[in-house]
Design a protein around this nucleic acid. Structure first.
Lengths: 356, 356
DNA sequence: GTGAAAGCGCTAACAC
DNA sequence: GTGTTAGCGCTTTCAC
């Protein structure tokens, strides 16, 4: 009926109003939580709306209220299950609080800055940036557009953006403590992308705690990125000098650690002579796969649920104008077979790493 | 300046127009591909817009054009990496064609039908349903709202919805063929959720091809759902009668197969006496983890990129009114170590399955 | 090629 | 409690 140029015949508030002989604004009120409408009128309107398939147009509402109830979620790659998980939780939390998630992903090799103009065109109430760096210029553009930016698991010094992250430094220190408890001596760190704050902070937290304890950081291997393959290759690098392998390795994230474990397994079976012991391995993130039987990965578990909740809270209950939230939540050490006991004989630790 | 009730001071077309002494409609034209504006005016407007940080409000545009350029992507769980991958590709493809992705995920245990009213409120140009069943009633509600529905990897007989899926029947038949080539005799199928079309079709394709070949389907195990844990337990079930284990197992998806492989590994090491041979294992999906060193999973690879492209094409170039697309794309068999050779002695096949 | 005017569907004063 | 009115930011006739 009220069709315009394109075919989209959804009924409008006016249709409902006409059908009931009330005014269009009364219909609007019936759909607004605490507007003054008599219970009867509201009931009648809701009933009629139901039968006509009417629901308020969220876009039109956003236009006038100046709040779209849409949050832009900008993400790098979701190849890492940790971010797939985060994505899902964000969507859930926002949904539950009446917000919707407009998803943007950066094409491989591009960074997310290019996406932001488009995000802003959709009048999002906030932008959440996941696992990706953001330039200061872009952050400022958002500020000019009056759109709060929340960096999730990344920090950006000097920029006008909220940040929510795991306390990487403190958590990484726990790994150093654990390796000390296991009496490991030759310690290695496998880095991810070294232009990320996560990578830098994890390395720094690990190495400073070691320094405090008077333990040397024996070796740092550049992984290149945060992938399984990078972890696999890094482990191969660590094993090239057979007599001189590390006895404990901290990987910058879980996926890399899984690659490392696989490379190690292969080495265990083919190397001759057998190595004197199996190195302990610890990751970072707490992805589900780390708990799988083939891996039994010890790791730092990020408090993902709390982190997501904290980020969403910034959207739903914004802090006073000009005030920036900087939340750092504590990670917890989860000990599994991959780093559960002092270095032992090959048989024993092979059994542990490979079988359980 | 033109602020209203809430604080959102983004500049509007009118601001740009005033600054330049042109009319607001001219500004609008400058941002419309083939509208009649003189090159000079357009250039001036674009320059001024750039410096003022103006971009057309996509919501207001959608309100009047009746096309929001937003697609609702409704998903069950993204715990399965196959769907995380699909999600990312959808977002990319849509973005590239000027559409945005509004993401909705169903809370665990709930189905997606409850989400659709909200999706429709956002005036999406189409709804894509990922890995989740949709009731006929809901599909009809979308039809009434004139919003096309695309079911991805699920079918819904009798409903007014487009479907894009892998040809599960034909692909599952390939698995039967391969098991036949390997001369396997005792064949098992591990099912996922049996209220899903994917599960039913994979089982049916597998079993009918076996029947055609005169081979019995030795056993069907109910997994319960499509998770790692379900696959793990199913394998344990299959191994309870030691002398009577299957020599080939087809899992309804990859994640389950990985669970199965892990359960099998544990059994290989602990069972005494050792089993006569290691069963061949095949999964379905083609997730990256299947290629990891610990698993080397043989599987049916779904043509995900093509499937996503096909689904997106329905959105961007809609078929003639009333015509429903039903795309079934072929899967391909990917042979890896988990099902690479006829059943062999324990040593040999253990090496193969565990180490490579 | 450009401006004036109408109106997309809705909310929010403002009257009564 | 309800109707009337204005107007969110934009696209699109319709004049000129």
């Amino acid at each position: 009926m009220t069709d315009s140029r394109h075919t989209r015949i959804r009924s409008t508030a006016r249709d409902v109003a006409q059908a009931l002989g009330v005014s269009q604004s009364t219909v609007s009120r019936a759909f607004t939580e605490d507007a003054s409408v008599s219970p009867q009128t509201r009931a009648a309107i809701l009933r009629m709306a139901g039968s006509m398939g009417y629901k308020p147009n969220a876009l039109a509402r956003g236009l006038i209220t100046n709040r779209s109830k849409i949050v832009g979620l900008v993400s790098g790659s979701v190849g890492n299950p940790f971010y797939a998980d985060a994505l899902q939780r964000f969507s859930q939390h926002l949904q539950q609080r009446g917000y919707q998630t407009l998803l943007f992903t950066a094409p491989a090799g591009h960074d997310v800055d290019a996406l932001l103009p488009v995000v802003l065109q959709y009048q999002v109430d906030a932008v959440i940036v996941l696992s990706a760096p953001l330039s200061v210029a872009t952050a400022e553009a958002c500020e000019r557009a009056n759109t709060p930016v929340i960096l999730f698991n990344r920090s950006l010094s000097g920029a006008k953006a909220h940040t929510v992250a795991c306390d990487n430094m403190a958590s990484a220190a726990l790994v150093a403590d654990w390796f000390a408890a296991l009496d490991c001596r030759r310690l290695a760190f496998v880095a991810g992308r070294d232009d990320t704050s996560t990578n830098r902070e994890r390395l720094q937290g690990f190495s400073s705690r070691l320094r405090e304890r008077g333990m040397p950081l024996w070796r740092v291997v550049a992984g290149g990125d945060f992938t399984y393959e990078a972890g696999y290759r890094a482990m191969q690098t660590l094993l090239t000098t057979p007599d001189d392998a590390p006895d404990a390795i901290f990987f910058a994230n879980d996926i890399m650690a899984l690659g490392g474990i696989d490379a190690l397994k292969l080495d265990q079976e083919t190397a001759s002579p057998r190595r004197p012991h199996t190195p302990s391995i610890v990751g970072f993130d707490g992805i589900a796969m780390g708990g799988w039987a083939s891996y039994q990965l010890s790791t730092i578990v990020q408090p993902l649920e709390e982190m997501v909740a904290a980020a969403v809270r910034i959207v739903t209950d914004p802090p006073p104008e000009g005030q920036l939230v900087e939340a750092k939540l504590p990670g917890t050490m989860m000990v599994r077979v991959s780093a559960s006991a002092p270095p032992a004989s090959p048989e024993q630790s092979t059994r542990a790493a490979v079988l359980l």
